[in-house]
Nucleic acid binder design. Structure first.
Length: 566
RNA sequence: AGGGGAUUGGUCUAAUGGUAGGACAACUGACUCUGACUCAGUUUGUAGAGGUUCGAAUCCUUUAUCCCCUGCCA
């Protein structure tokens, strides 16, 4: 039971925290936050960030806040606040009583901005957005100072107040920090701090018509919440000097020792899918998937609907690294994590996806035996269940072959196979459709001495098949999911095409299956292993009374069919 | 006249001047009343070139490649 050393060893952020703790910084506090913008759905890349923020807080005896970054009323909505809260909670990150919004501090942010103006560190810009772009320079050329840069403090104060009072139209003016128009770091070329938006905000209503920009709002939120370690993704590295500038220049009187520090880490990506909010939206809007919670989507809601557990996602995030570079994790690792968990916990059941009828000619008509089958060989405490056996059963169509390749372990004409937990049967006759030639039924006999668990059950045959009793089986819809895209990196579409052309049209295959009788009791949200098929989840939306719907979370590893393809 | 990040097998990650190790993937084989699980084994790596050193993934020089930055988005 030893945990792998690599798993418990810290990452570079934990190293920073260790140093801070050792040096007595922040009086030994560790306080993180997850700051989503409520303008879309969370995906597994966000799960990674949440797990990092929350995990680091917990591991260091600290606290974790959930704070919505709602500074842009044009894009944000309560609907997203609700779905994000549900996702974060589902993942197991507990913000306790610390749910905040950037908009909670609009007044403080305004007051701090007035302070900056008074210090001559901010000014009102009259240039249009276009003109500002001209003045900003380029990546290789410095910018020029705005003609409005040297307005008096009094004028700036007056203008800012009138901006707040709604005297000016959207886009006519903006408050800018006075830093350095020649900085090689474009972020520091007098960044905008406030813009005018006569828009209804989902929380503050019409109280404000000026809204702070992220770069100004975020450090203040961190500061007011006494955040110690403000973790964000790599693209904010260039913004760190501005983050520090804001913290250093606002007029604050810290309530707790220390100040927030921004640390950046690489985002997590996944093979065979995308994380781009814009592209995921296209998939939904163009109808390539059924919605944001489509089980093919890499969204948290999609993974949840697919049947992934929060713990498997956490394990996956923990097994992924933390580094100062963006990473693309192998989908296989995520699948490994859910298989590992469900192998230990999921009850085994039998479901036949493509039924092939078998009549056991020497089995008495009308006889039914209730056979005892263990629920989970990995866990004896999971007990057993009774499964009905009768003269007519279904097996998986692909478990019979007329012209089998070498090493085929299942039924062939004249061959034998064990029906899991039941008897060994022998195929005596193949019945085909007269028109199509397709195999539609097998006539078999069973070995009366071979009953599972019986005194003479020790005889070995090379294969075991899962089955259901025709008379007792329950019909169920089974959705077999595969990767959303056909290519590992859907961002790399061929010349002249885009990622839409790489969508895997077989990512969803629906089968009308026959499942064992015990599954009639399955409840929405239950997870099972369908023996030899994979792990399945009772769809919480589509499964209704008397109407079973299962989502394949992940298939079992299959070294047999894999070998056939090559 | 640009600035900022980064580069260890297919993927992710350890090794902080002293045996390049782990996980996943892949491949063999054993086992198997799940071709699962489990077990045993195998393949694959320090981006290149110089240098310092008894010794370099690690330090120095240099080259290459990839990512981010010119929103009144976050």
């Amino acid at each position: 039971m030893s945990v792998n050393e690599a798993d418990v060893r810290g990452n570079f952020i934990q190293d920073i925290i260790d140093e801070d703790l050792a040096s007595g910084k922040n009086a030994g506090r560790v306080h993180t936050r997850f700051p989503p913008e409520p303008n879309g759905w969370l995906h597994i890349g966000h799960a990674f960030a949440i797990n990092l923020d929350y995990g680091l807080a917990v591991a260091n005896g600290g606290k974790f806040n959930l704070r919505f970054d709602d500074t842009n009323p044009l894009k944000e909505d309560q609907e997203f606040v609700d779905s994000i809260m549900a996702d974060v909670a589902w993942l197991g990150a507990d913000w306790e009583d610390r749910l905040f919004f950037a908009s909670d501090y609009f007044q403080e942010k305004y007051d701090f901005a007035v302070g900056l103006i008074k210090k001559g560190l901010a000014y009102i810009e009259d240039l249009s957005a276009d003109e500002m772009r001209q003045y900003r320079g380029t990546l290789t050329e410095p910018g020029r100072n705005s003609p409005y840069r040297d307005r008096s403090v009094a004028e700036n104060l007056d203008l800012f107040e009138r901006m707040k009072n709604g005297e000016f139209a959207d886009g006519t003016r903006v408050l800018r920090a006075k830093i350095d128009m020649a900085s090689p770091n474009i972020t520091l070329r007098d960044p905008a701090l406030y813009r005018i938006r006569h828009a209804h905000h989902h929380r503050t209503g019409d109280k404000w018509c000026i809204y702070p920009m992220y770069d100004y709002s975020h450090p203040i939120g961190d500061y007011l919440e006494n955040i110690t370690h403000s973790l964000c993704s790599l693209e904010y590295v260039d913004h760190r000097p501005l983050y520090d500038w804001v913290i250093e220049n606002i007029d604050h009187t810290p309530t707790l020792p220390g100040r927030p520090r921004q640390t950046e880490f690489g985002r997590l990506g996944l093979t065979y899918t995308l994380m781009s909010k814009r592209k995921l939206r296209r998939l939904v809007e163009e109808g390539h998937v059924a919605g944001w919670d489509d089980p093919r989507m890499p969204t948290i809601s999609g993974l949840r609907r697919r049947g992934y557990t929060p713990s498997s996602i956490r394990t996956f995030c923990e097994k992924s690294g933390v580094a100062r570079k963006n990473m693309v994790m192998d989908l296989a690792l995520l699948e490994y994590c859910i298989r590992e968990e469900l192998n230990a916990s999921a009850h085994r059941t039998m479901a036949v996806l493509k039924p092939l009828k078998i009549v056991l000619e020497n089995y008495p008509e009308g006889q039914v035996e209730w056979l005892e089958i263990e629920n989970n060989p990995e866990n004896p405490e999971a007990g057993s269940r009774k499964v009905p056996f009768s003269r007519t059963v279904y097996i998986e169509h692909e478990d019979f072959m007329e012209n089998p390749p070498k090493k085929f372990h299942r039924l062939v004409l004249g061959g034998e196979v064990r029906l899991k937990g039941a008897y060994i049967i022998k195929c005596e006759q193949v019945i085909k459709d007269e028109v199509t030639g397709e195999v539609i039924e097998l006539r078999c006999t069973y070995d009366t001495e071979s009953k599972s668990g019986g005194p003479a059950s020790g005889r070995k045959v090379k294969g075991t098949s899962h089955w259901v009793s025709a008379e007792h089986a329950v019909p169920a819809q089974v959705r077999l999911y595969d990767t959303l895209f056909t290519q590992e990196n859907p961002e790399q579409a061929p010349e002249g095409e885009d990622f839409i052309s790489l969508i895997n049209l077989n990512a969803l295959v629906v089968e009308d299956a026959m499942v064992e009788a015990s599954l009639a009791e399955a409840k929405p949200g239950d997870r099972f292993q369908f023996m030899r098929q994979g792990y399945f989840f009772v769809d919480p939306v589509d499964a209704k009374e008397g109407q079973l719907a299962f989502n394949r979370i992940v298939g079992l590893k299959d070294s047999w069919s894999k070998g056939l393809k090559s």
